[in-house]
C-alpha cells in the first residue's frame, strides 16, 4: 500500500520534474489519439449513414383485391415474419392519390376505374437488408395468402453490401495500421523519456531500490501523461467535430463516454509503452 501511494505521489511529482519532456509526451499522445479518434469518428459516421440507408429500404407487397379486414389479416401475418420491422398499409385510394400527386390529374383522366392494387410497404430490420435475407423474406411474404406480388430494388441491396464491405475492410486495415502507428509513436516517446532517465534508474538500483519502487512511479507518470494526452485529444476532437459537422453532416458527436474511452486508451498506451520500455532497463 505504501509503495502504491509512493508511486502515485512520486509519479505526479515526476510530471513536474520532467517539465518540457512530459509536455512533449502529452502532446505526442494527444496528436496520435486525435488522428486515431478522427478515424473512428468518420468510421462511425459512415456506419450510421449506412445503417440509416438500410433502415429506409422498403419492399412493396401488392395485394389481391379483398375486403379491408382481409388485408388487415394479411398485414398481421407479414408483420410477424422474421426480419420485418414495420409495415404501412397503402389502400387503392391512397395509391391513386400518390399517383395523382406524382403525375397530375391528366394522366388518370382516361381511366374510369382505379386499376391500382392495395399494398403494404414493408420496412426490414437493417441487419436483414442483404441479398439472402431479403430473398428469404420476399419468398415468405409472397407465400402469405392475399399477396399477389412482391417487388424491391435488388440493385440497391448489392450497392449497400458492396459499400459496406469496402468500408468495413478498408477501415479494419486502416484502423489496425493507425492503432499500431499510434502505439509505436507513444511507446517510442515514452521509451526516449525513460532512456533519458537511465542514470537516475541506475543510481536508484545502486542504492537498493526495489524494482517496484523504480518502476511504479515511472509507470504512473506515463499513465497520467497518457490520460492527459487523451483528454486533450478528446477536447480537440469535440471542437473539430463541431466545426466539421458544418461540412460533413454524417459526423457523430463526441460524447462524454467516448472521451472516457479515449482517456482509457491513453492510459493503456501509457502503461504498455512504459512497461515495454522499462522491461529491459531494470537488471534484477
Amino acid at each position: 500500500m505504501r509503495l502504491f501511494i509512493y508511486s502515485i505521489v512520486d509519479g505526479l511529482s515526476g510530471l513536474k520534474r520532467s517539465g518540457i519532456s512530459s509536455l512533449l509526451t502529452i502532446l505526442t499522445i494527444c496528436c496520435s489519439l486525435v488522428l486515431l479518434g478522427a478515424f473512428y469518428i468518420i468510421r462511425q459516421g459512415l456506419r450510421e449513414n449506412l445503417q440509416e440507408t438500410r433502415s429506409r429500404f422498403v419492399l412493396e407487397a401488392f395485394l389481391l383485391d379483398a375486403e379491408p379486414e382481409d388485408h388487415r389479416k394479411t398485414g398481421e401475418k407479414i408483420l410477424h415474419l422474421a426480419g420485418v420491422d414495420s409495415i404501412e398499409y397503402v389502400s387503392k385510394d391512397d395509391a391513386l392519390a400518390r399517383v395523382r400527386e406524382t403525375f397530375g390529374d391528366d394522366y388518370l383522366a382516361l381511366i374510369e376505374d382505379n386499376p391500382l392494387p392495395a399494398s403494404f410497404h414493408v420496412v426490414l430490420q437493417p441487419s436483414y437488408v442483404n441479398r439472402d435475407s431479403v430473398a428469404r423474406i420476399v419468398a415468405a411474404i409472397a407465400g402469405v395468402p392475399g399477396v399477389e406480388d412482391v417487388v424491391y430494388r435488388a440493385t440497391l441491396i448489392d450497392l449497400l453490401n458492396r459499400y459496406d464491405r469496402l468500408v468495413g475492410a478498408g477501415f479494419i486495415i486502416f484502423g489496425i495500421a493507425l492503432s499500431i502507428l499510434g502505439f509505436v509513436l507513444i511507446s517510442n516517446n515514452i521509451r526516449l523519456t525513460i532512456e533519458a532517465k537511465r542514470d537516475i534508474i541506475e543510481t536508484m538500483e545502486l542504492v537498493g531500490a526495489s524494482r517496484g519502487l523504480i518502476v511504479g512511479p515511472l509507470l504512473i507518470q506515463a499513465m497520467i501523461e497518457g490520460g492527459l494526452g487523451a483528454l486533450f485529444a478528446g477536447i480537440v476532437l469535440s471542437v473539430l467535430v463541431q466545426v466539421g459537422t458544418i461540412f460533413i453532416p454524417v459526423l457523430s458527436p463526441v460524447t462524454a463516454t467516448s472521451i472516457g474511452v479515449l482517456v482509457l486508451v491513453g492510459v493503456l498506451f501509457g502503461f504498455l509503452g512504459s512497461f515495454n520500455a522499462l522491461g529491459w532497463r531494470i537488471r534484477y
Partner: peptide, 15 residues
C-alpha cells in the same frame, strides 16, 4: 536490492 541497502555507495562522479 536487499544487499545494497546494507551498503552505502559514494562515487567519484557523485551519482
Amino acid at each position: 536490492p536487499l544487499l545494497r541497502r546494507q551498503i552505502g555507495m559514494v562515487f567519484q562522479d557523485f551519482r
